[in-house]
Design a protein around this nucleic acid. Structure first.
Length: 147
DNA sequence: CGTCTTTGACCTGCGC
DNA sequence: GCGCAGGTCAAAGACG
């Protein structure tokens, strides 16, 4: 069931948004992640765990793509989208058991704006101070979740 | 030495 | 059935 919900020490922005005048943040809880079996190759990864996928996207005005939100992220891919001249970066949480993914994309129209999309919820506390992220929160705007 | 970044290749889903 | 787009992984290199 909801073994991923801690409601204690995750996504600092979630709590902050509570008293912020930011727009509404939409969370999509989809339970359709199972069936990701890839046979035929040496990939024996089993992601058949139907975990709740919560997606959270927002815009930030920054010159750097890497927004330090207090967690450690490891980049695992970079692909360019057809609609955007700039490539999209894929990050993943390096915590054991915490398979949270982060997606960062820059707008081709406004390369000063960075769209960050969080996927999943952290199951561990932050390792760094949130003060830095809190500052970013002031400039960030909730972007329409997705379609 | 350990950690993380980068790039290419590979896979899947969807559309036609 | 094929092509396109998007998404992911792995290995090597770079860096502190």
């Amino acid at each position: 069931m909801e073994g991923y919900q801690n409601g204690s020490s995750y996504a600092p922005f979630l709590s902050l948004t509570s008293h912020q005048n930011l727009a509404k943040s939409e969370f999509h809880q989809g339970e359709e992640e199972a069936s990701k079996v890839r046979e035929g190759s040496s990939r024996s990864l089993e992601v058949k765990k139907k975990g709740k996928k919560q997606r959270f996207a927002f815009q930030t005005r920054s010159q750097v793509d890497i927004l330090d939100d207090g967690y450690r992220w490891r980049k695992y891919g970079q692909k360019a989208v057809k609609n955007n001249t700039f490539p999209r970066s894929y990050y993943r949480c390096t915590y054991a058991g915490c398979n949270v993914k982060k997606q960062v994309q820059r707008l081709t129209s406004d390369q000063e704006v960075v769209v960050t999309t969080y996927e999943g919820v952290h199951s561990h506390a932050i390792e760094k101070s949130t003060e830095n992220f809190e500052h970013i929160l002031t400039q960030m705007q909730i972007y329409s979740s997705f379609n």
